[in-house]
């Protein structure tokens, strides 16, 4: 049954569906009974009880580590990281334990766990509540990473992540939780490794993730009035990456902008630029342009925060740059 709902509601609905479907699925995290601060897990306890909605102590290492212990012995945990920034307190568990367990043990165990990573800039969250940390995990072999931009995508990808036999990180931009959109129907899963064209266009491909998909759609409307027809391509999952979709889009437009919210250096955008170069160098009519944050921590004061936040203006400027001489 198709419906128009908020992103946060789509998260909750996906959790409900998967918890009903499989009684091995449970949620664990800080303040998840009340669903503070984003409301995604609020009310789940009423249906599933405290044994499956585990309000954990502030112990990120134990939350994430215990999820692995449970996953390797038969359960299917869904961890709410509260703020993705706090994953630093469980970095051994994610990077050394979860990512490597199947591999180091020669395939003896499954590690079917999902890490929900509420992340992103906005509302003066400051240096410890605003970071885009997805690049760290793209760089760790053994993890799958997705970054849904719409209610339908988070609904479908979260369901896929929970059903996947391997660890999957789902990056949920906290600025998107109140965004509404249509969620097609109850069984609408989105496979990992499948990009989606969010707006077709002929002149420039903007490869954008999460909030930057929406900024890029805004930019595309403005550029349309200048006669520049923008295609917005959302990879949706970074690991695995739909390289074929990227190549197909570049073959149509021959010009590429890559837009992300995290810092410029050593980022997912930098990696995507290399992918485009490797797969589509001969198709490119202009150097790739990138939109990303400057290499500073996220500041608190509103004008400072606004300054480092990539937005539609930046995408417009980058698209004009790659269109020079066209």
């Amino acid at each position: 049954m198709a419906r128009v709902i908020e992103y946060a509601e789509a998260v909750k609905l996906a959790l409900q569906h998967e918890m009903r479907r499989d009684d091995r699925v449970y949620c664990i995290g800080e303040d998840i009974v009340l669903g503070v601060p984003f409301g995604c897990t609020k009310g789940l306890i009423d249906e599933f009880g405290p044994a499956r909605v585990l309000n954990a102590p502030i112990s990120e290492a134990a939350i994430v580590g215990s999820a692995m212990g449970a996953a390797m012995t038969g359960l299917v945990p869904v961890v709410d990281m509260h703020f993705a920034d706090f994953v630093t307190c469980a970095m051994d568990e994610v990077a050394n334990q979860i990512a490597k367990s199947r591999y180091m043990f020669g395939g003896q165990i499954d590690c079917p766990l999902t890490l929900r990573m509420p992340y992103g800039i906005g509302r003066s969250g400051g240096g410890h509540h605003s970071n885009s940390v997805e690049a760290w995990f793209v760089n760790i072999p053994g993890l799958k990473v997705c970054i849904p931009s719409t209610p339908a995508d988070v609904f479908g990808l979260l369901k896929t992540a929970i059903r996947d036999p391997d660890p999957v990180l789902v990056f949920e931009h906290r600025g998107l939780y109140r965004v509404t959109g249509e969620v097609p129907d109850d069984d609408a899963v989105v496979p990992l490794g499948r990009a989606e064209v969010k707006r077709p266009g002929r002149d420039v491909t903007v490869i954008a993730t999460a909030r930057m998909v929406h900024e890029s759609l805004t930019a595309a409307e403005r550029l349309a009035s200048e006669g520049i027809d923008v295609e917005v391509l959302d990879p949706r999952s970074l690991v695995p990456l739909d390289r074929d979709a990227l190549a197909a889009s570049v073959a149509r437009t021959h010009r590429v902008v890559i837009a992300e919210e995290g810092p410029m250096r050593g980022s997912t955008g930098a990696w995507l630029a290399w992918v485009v170069m490797e797969d589509s160098f001969d198709e490119l009519d202009a150097p790739i342009a990138r939109v990303a944050a400057p290499n500073v921590p996220i500041p608190f004061s509103p004008p400072l925060e606004a300054f480092v936040t990539p937005d539609a203006d930046d995408v417009v400027a980058a698209a004009r740059q790659v269109m020079k001489g066209a």
């Binding site: 585990l54 215990s66 390797m72 359960l75």
Partner: peptide, 8 residues
């Protein structure tokens, strides 16, 4: 920290 999860 893995142990509590095995316990669960």
């Amino acid at each position: 920290v893995l142990a509590p999860g095995v316990g669960l």
